[in-house]
């Protein structure tokens, strides 16, 4: 009966994952390997293709002027001296804003997923906030892995493939921001998790009882323990020949924290460097006093 309960939990979290995350790993890998019947993604590999691809980039969340009128320079950056703000500089900032817009939407998706974890909404509300504040960027990075291969990443719900070399070529600090995620993802992808494994792993990350400032750790650890058992069983079933996969996966949680710390520092640096950079209030909330 205990194993049956753990399997039921696994199914429940997998269903919640499918409901809340629009681009699954199965779909992303199919796109990357050209196995969907659909049109191949639009490839962005230089400034020209970025400009063309801007029309496709899905910016449905941030209510910025430039998203409705992609040809116009964004109002938020109009105060930047024109001599300093060349065409590709504006493009880079607009692209950065699109990434923000997708991140805000991702926070909403992760929040809804967290709410579907049995027992999560019964935790102290302040602890729910803390778990999300510390968990969402880690989750976003994990969710990027299925979209990436060594050469680039899918963006805009799989409609666009952006090359790693192009991302690397962006001016500082943009150009440095994605490389650690590629390095992590290429290694993470060798574990060959499926979407069901991913769902459980995400729940384990959210239910981390060691986040700073938690008021009531015990119930969080209890919930996490159950999900961990479910994950362990799930991995034994889905990867019977992969020895120590459970342990290898848990080790990834340490790498993730370092990536998030560096990511937040890069954003803070960017905020200082780009005079009029607009950082969405929700992302500000999450990153303020994070690490």
């Amino acid at each position: 009966p205990e194993a049956a309960d753990l399997r039921a939990l696994s199914r429940h979290l997998y269903e919640a994952y499918l409901k809340n995350f629009p681009l699954t790993k199965a779909k992303a890998r199919a796109i990357l390997s050209g196995k969907t019947g659909d049109k191949a993604p639009f490839v962005i590999h230089d400034m020209k293709s970025l400009m063309e691809g801007e029309q496709i980039i899905n910016c449905r969340q941030i209510p910025c002027q430039e998203h409705q009128q992609p040809q116009q320079p964004p109002a938020a950056f109009a105060a930047v001296g024109h001599a300093d703000c060349n065409m590709s500089g504006e493009l880079e900032l607009r692209f950065f804003n699109s990434c923000q817009s997708r991140s805000v939407e991702a926070v909403r998706e992760v929040t809804e997923f967290a709410k579907s974890i049995p027992g999560f909404v019964n935790l102290d509300l302040n602890d729910q906030v803390t778990l999300l504040k510390y968990g969402v960027i880690e989750i976003m990075i994990i969710m990027m892995a299925p979209l990436m291969n060594k050469d680039g990443t899918l963006i805009s719900y799989g409609q666009i493939f952006m090359t790693r070399e192009f991302l690397k070529s962006l001016r500082k600090p943009f150009g440095e921001m994605m490389e650690p995620k590629f390095e992590f993802s290429v290694k993470f992808n060798t574990l060959e998790l499926d979407d069901n494994d991913m769902a459980l792993f995400l729940a384990v990350i959210i239910l981390s009882g060691d986040r700073p400032g938690l008021l009531n750790v015990k119930p969080i650890e209890c919930l996490q323990e159950t999900v961990l058992h479910s994950l362990e069983l799930q991995l034994k079933i889905s990867h019977p020949d992969s020895l120590q996969l459970f342990a290898k996966l848990l080790q990834k949680m340490t790498d993730l924290r370092q990536i998030v710390t560096n990511h937040v520092h890069s954003i803070q640096l960017l905020k200082k460097r780009e005079v009029d950079m607009f950082l969405h209030p929700l992302l500000q909330e999450i990153m303020k006093d994070l690490y």
């Binding site: 969340q61 941030i62 929040t111 729910q128 906030v129 504040k133 209030p281 929700l282 909330e285």
Partner: peptide
């Protein structure tokens, strides 16, 4: 609570961040 107003709101209802 004030520091994480939007996260609180997202947790308590389905408000889209764009409306906040």
């Amino acid at each position: 609570k004030e520091k994480h107003k939007i996260l609180h709101q997202l947790l308590q209802n389905n408000t889209s961040p764009v409306d906040l």
